[in-house]
Design a protein around this nucleic acid. Structure first.
Ligand code: ZN
Length: 462
DNA sequence: CGCGTTTGACCGGCGC
DNA sequence: GCGCCGGTCAAACGCG
């Protein structure tokens, strides 16, 4: 299934495949794995080690005193200490959740206030004032046919200049919709060992699910990435079931279906941008009905969380239906775009679509900074800014992985942090062993990233 | 020989 | 009703 890769698109005799997690130039920075958990695990290991040492000391001293009761006492103390730590951790998590909620509310207000004074062009084009030069919000919906197809065509022809050099480093577009989590966002998350954190996240998810049940449509997640490869490796196995020439596009659109499970309904479309053939647009639809390899899970969770963020942001402080319809009309006129450089809302599509625009990852560090500053009010709510640490120095521009970019950019959003935390926590139980199975793209993955690319991004859930 | 891709046929939605 | 179009099916084909 992957051998056709090079046949699909003429152009590249090159890397048969691009990997989401690989750096475009597998160069320089050694550590690029997008490894949310290891950071966390490391932390845990560290504390565990500390505890062990502690035990040792205490036991030796206990032996010195030769009182078994003393030993018990010390052990109890240790236990107490651990429990305290745990308690503290839980409390911070709770605090963070609360802060996030507050932040969310604040954001809603901010958005509200902001959007009114500064809505822009009627056709949905929005230029984010906070983004700074070189950043634009684009509405890329080329994948979808829709009532306003003509309009969209015009728009895309207008905006796809992005494919040019500098354009939106990261755009996140979504159309409003009733829901984002159709049933089980990721099943692999469901059966992981539970921690208190997970329970919380479960609760969160259930909330989301409740909302979801209302939706009758699938949500789409569209990813735009610059790639010479005919298909990006996202951790899943896909089987091609069709290919069509899209109307306004010389490049054919390929249709894939997930083959990791027989009944998995997930489909994906892959198409090159007509204006810039180096940009690959991948659109996912549906929810996997099976556990995903970590790579795919990260992807799924990221996109899901991003979508959740946008949608929750859009619905905060309002009832879902009224607000979503409201949003729909508003976004149609470009009113409802979030004030995040990478986020915008669009209701041009019948099917809810979240678009991650990664066509220019190189700008990320800067755009991130913009976001951070622009969102500083939000970030204030985070005890420890949920973290994104790009290397001390932003690595050479083209070196960040797509996933890193996505995650980093989105993660700056506090609400996203919550959502992502949920997603991540669900993956904590995944053993690293699973990770190498991630061969993602499956069998063929020649080019590349046999493993997750390393990333300097760390995510602290505390 | 099994499996995945290829590719034209087919289907349903939508606009005229 | 007709044609267009996006999406899917499935027989044929190719590869290991
Ligand atoms: Zn699947």
């Amino acid at each position: 299934m992957y051998n056709n890769i090079s046949q699909d698109h003429l152009m590249d005799p090159k890397p048969p495949e691009m990997t989401f997690f690989r750096l475009e130039s597998a160069d320089t920075t050694p550590i690029r794995e997008l490894d949310f958990f290891s950071g966390h695990n490391r932390h845990r290991e560290a504390t565990a080690a500390a505890v062990a040492v502690d035990d040792e000391n205490s036991s030796s001293s206990a032996l010195g005193s030769s009182g078994t009761t003393n030993i018990d006492l010390i052990m109890l103390q240790d236990e107490l200490k651990l429990v305290k730590e745990e308690n503290w951790r839980l409390r911070s998590m709770l605090d963070q959740l609360r802060r996030n909620y507050t932040a969310l509310q604040t954001q809603f207000q901010v958005i509200h206030q902001r959007d009114h004074p500064r809505q822009e062009h009627k056709d949905g084009k929005i230029i984010s004032s906070v983004a700074g030069p070189g950043l634009q919000l684009l509405d890329h919906q080329f994948m979808e046919p829709g009532p306003s197809g003509l309009k969209r065509k015009i728009r895309s022809s207008r905006y796809t200049e992005d494919d040019g050099e500098q354009s939106s480093p990261l755009n996140l577009t979504t159309s409003t919709t009733p829901t984002i989590f159709p049933s089980h966002p990721t099943d692999c998350s469901a059966d992981q060992p539970s921690s208190s954190m997970e329970e919380k996240t479960k609760a969160i998810k259930e909330d989301a699910n409740a909302d979801t049940e209302l939706s009758y449509r699938k949500t789409r997640v569209s990813v735009r990435a610059r790639s010479d490869a005919p298909m990006i490796s996202d951790g899943c196995q896909w089987r091609k079931y069709g290919q069509k020439m899209a109307k306004g596009n010389p490049c054919p659109r390929a249709y894939y279906r997930c083959t990791m499970s027989n009944d998995c309904p997930v489909r994906k479309q892959v198409q090159r941008c007509s204006n810039d053939k180096s940009v690959l647009v991948t659109t996912y639809e549906g929810i996997h009905k099976h556990p995903l390899p970590p790579a795919a899970t990260v992807m799924a969770n990221t996109t899901t969380a991003a979508a959740a963020m946008l949608l929750s942001g859009s619905t905060t402080g309002n009832t879902h239906h009224s607000s979503s319809s409201l949003m729909a009309s508003a976004s149609g006129t470009g009113l409802m775009h979030m004030h995040y450089p990478f986020a915008s809302l669009s209701a041009l599509t019948p099917i809810p679509t979240v678009t991650l625009d990664l066509t220019n990852p190189s700008d990320t560090p800067y755009s991130l900074q913009h976001q951070l500053s622009s969102l500083s009010t939000c970030n204030l709510f985070l005890p420890q800014p949920s973290l994104i640490q790009f290397g001390p120095q932003p690595p050479p521009p083209q070196s960040s992985s797509v996933m890193e970019t996505v995650t980093a950019a989105i993660a700056t959003h506090p609400n996203f942090t919550t959502a992502l935390a949920a997603a991540i926590s669900s993956m904590m139980g995944v053993t690293s062993g699973f990770a190498n199975g991630e061969g993602g793209g499956g069998t063929a993955k020649s080019s590349g990233s046999p493993r997750l690319a390393k990333s300097c991004t760390t995510f602290s859930v505390n």
